[in-house]
């Protein structure tokens, strides 16, 4: 955990350095009329200061006994699948539309994360797709793209 904390502090230090440079490029104004860069620059400086304190705290911390590993497996692939599914949903929503996208999204998650039978998966995906079109677009008038189905 100590090394993770050191890495996190270094990240914030880098973040504040990049940000203060970016803020400094904006008009800074003067004390009696601060410009657009004044506030972000000040915040970036404070972030840097806090990151330095956090770094010193982490360095002073004793390297303790490592936390016991959980008996359960860390299922990192689930996170990757969900991330991919969310990004794919965003990129294809305008083209495929709410119903098709929702159907495919549900199908993927129900089949991959905690695999269900095809019957259950298809049924749940279809119901969710139809219901979301009816609820959001018809009932609430949310104007989410209909895509290739075009209604």
């Amino acid at each position: 955990m100590r090394s993770v904390k050191i890495c996190a502090s270094l990240f914030w230090l880098l973040f504040s350095a990049v940000l203060s440079r970016e803020a400094f490029r904006l008009p800074m104004g003067e004390m009696k009329d601060p410009g657009a860069g004044f506030f972000p620059f000040m915040v970036a400086l404070v972030t840097g200061l806090l990151a330095v304190i956090a770094l010193f705290q982490s360095l002073r911390e004793q390297a303790g006994v490592p936390a016991p590993c959980s008996a359960e497996r860390f299922r990192w692939w689930n996170l990757v699948v969900i991330l991919a599914a969310l990004i794919a949903y965003a990129l294809t929503l305008e083209k495929l539309g709410l119903m098709i996208n929702t159907f495919l999204f549900m199908l993927l998650l129900l089949k991959v994360i905690e695999p269900q039978t095809w019957t259950k998966t298809l049924l749940a995906s279809s119901i969710t797709a139809v219901f979301s079109e009816f609820f959001f677009n018809v009932l609430l008038g949310a104007q989410i793209p209909a895509g290739i189905l075009g209604f």
């Binding site: 969900i82 599914a85 969310l86 949903y89 965003a90 929702t102 999204f105 549900m106 998650l109 129900l110 994360i113 969710t128 979301s132 959001f136 949310a142 989410i144």
Partner: peptide
């Protein structure tokens, strides 16, 4: 439940 929560988040 979780795909539905994600779907609501997306919408």
């Amino acid at each position: 439940l979780f795909p539905l929560i994600l779907l609501f988040c997306i919408i």
